[in-house]
Amino acid sequence: MRKDLVQRAHGTARLWVSLWMNHDGVLDDQGHTVLRPPGMPLEENGLITSYRVGRLRYDGLRRLLPLKLERLRRAVEAERRRTAA
């Protein structure tokens, strides 16, 4: 599914992408919100919001994943260093 979404949005190497059309906070000349197609890379706020909502929505993830995305990044980095040694 991700592959198809990313192809429609002109491709990206980013891991986290939007699943639905969203806006980027920019207005066009008529004052309408500019929409971005599904498959676009998530910006920082979208990434943080998606992580928090997903973690809370699925009970198993609440116990498995840390509260903040930064703690997850640090844990992954520590595991990467451990397995590379």
Rank of each mutant, 00 (worst) to 15 (best):
M1C: 13
D4G: 12
L5Q: 05
H10V: 04
G11T: 09
T12P: 03
A13H: 06
L15H: 06
W16C: 12
W16T: 02
V17M: 06
S18R: 13
L19A: 10
L19P: 00
W20S: 04
W20Y: 11
W20H: 13
M21E: 14
M21P: 01
M21T: 14
N22V: 03
H23M: 03
H23N: 14
D24Y: 07
D24P: 04
G25V: 07
V26A: 11
D28R: 10
D28A: 06
D29M: 02
G31A: 10
G31Q: 05
G31T: 05
V34G: 04
R36H: 04
M40S: 06
G46T: 02
I48L: 10
I48C: 02
T49G: 01
T49C: 00
Y51S: 03
R52E: 06
V53Y: 03
R55C: 06
L56W: 03
L56Q: 12
D59I: 04
G60F: 13
L61A: 10
L61H: 13
L61W: 15
L61Q: 12
R63T: 09
L65R: 05
P66D: 11
L67M: 14
K68N: 12
K68Y: 11
K68E: 14
E70N: 09
R71Q: 15
L72H: 04
R73H: 11
R73C: 10
R73Q: 12
A75F: 09
V76L: 15
R81L: 13
R82V: 04
T83L: 12
A84C: 06
A84N: 12
